[in-house]
Amino acid sequence: MNERGGKIIASKVSNAYFPQKPGSELGGPNWACPNGCTTQTFYNWDPTSAMGVSESGMLGVEGAIWSEHLRTEHDMQFVTLPRLYALAEVGWTPQSQRNYADFASRLPQRGLDLMMRDATFHLASEVSGWKSEYAPTVVEELDSSASVQEVVLLAAPGLTQEELNKIKLTAKLTDSAGKEHVLPLEYDLARSFHYTDENATTGRIMNSLVRVMATIPADLPEGEATIAVEGSVDPTGVVSGTARTAGVTVTASSAVTVKASETEPTDPTEPTDPTEPTDPTEQTDPTGPTLGEGETEVMPKGVEADDADLNFRINMGRS
Rank of each mutant, 00 (worst) to 15 (best):
S105H: 08
T93N: 10
F121Q: 04
E89A: 10
R98Y: 09
D118N: 13
R117W: 06
G111N: 02
N99S: 11
R106V: 03
P108C: 11
P94K: 08
S96V: 04
G111A: 05
F121G: 09
M116V: 02
R117F: 03
A104K: 14
A119D: 00
F121N: 02
P94G: 07
P94N: 10
V90A: 10
G91T: 14
F103M: 03
Y100M: 04
P94F: 09
R110L: 10
D113W: 13
R117K: 15
H122D: 12
R117V: 01
P94C: 06
D113N: 08
L112S: 07
L107N: 02
Q109K: 13
A101K: 10
T120S: 13
P108R: 09
T120R: 04
V90T: 09
L107G: 03
S96I: 01
D102K: 09
F103A: 03
G91W: 10
P94M: 04
H122A: 07
D113P: 00
R117E: 15
T120I: 09
Y85L: 14
D113Y: 14
A86C: 11
W92A: 04
L114F: 15
A119Q: 11
G111L: 06
D102P: 00
A86N: 11
Q97Y: 06
A101E: 12
L87V: 13
Y85N: 11
Q95R: 13
G111M: 03
L112F: 07
A101F: 00
Q97V: 00
T93S: 11
S105T: 07
R110K: 15
M116I: 02
A88Q: 12
G91H: 11
A104V: 06
G111S: 01
N99F: 05
M116W: 06
S96Q: 12
Y85F: 15
Y100K: 04
A88W: 14
Y100H: 12
F103Q: 03
L87A: 10
R117P: 01
Q97T: 02
Q97M: 05
L112C: 05
G111K: 04
A88V: 13
D118C: 01
A86M: 11
L87C: 10
M116E: 14
F121I: 08
M115R: 04
R110W: 11
M115D: 01
A104Y: 04
R106Q: 15
Q97I: 00
T93Y: 03
R106S: 15
A119G: 05
F103C: 09
M115H: 01
A104N: 05
T93L: 12
G111T: 06
L112Q: 11
D118S: 07
M115T: 05
D113S: 13
S96F: 00
Y85D: 15
Y85Q: 12
P108K: 05
A104S: 14
R106H: 14
D102S: 07
Q95T: 12
H122E: 08
N99L: 08
Q97P: 00
R110T: 08
D102Y: 04
L87W: 10
A86H: 07
F121E: 02
D118I: 07
N99P: 02
G91S: 12
Q95S: 10
M115F: 01
H122N: 15
S96R: 06
L114V: 06
M116K: 12
Y85W: 13
A86F: 11
V90Q: 08
G91E: 09
M115L: 14
V90S: 04
R98Q: 08
R110S: 07
A101H: 02
S105R: 11
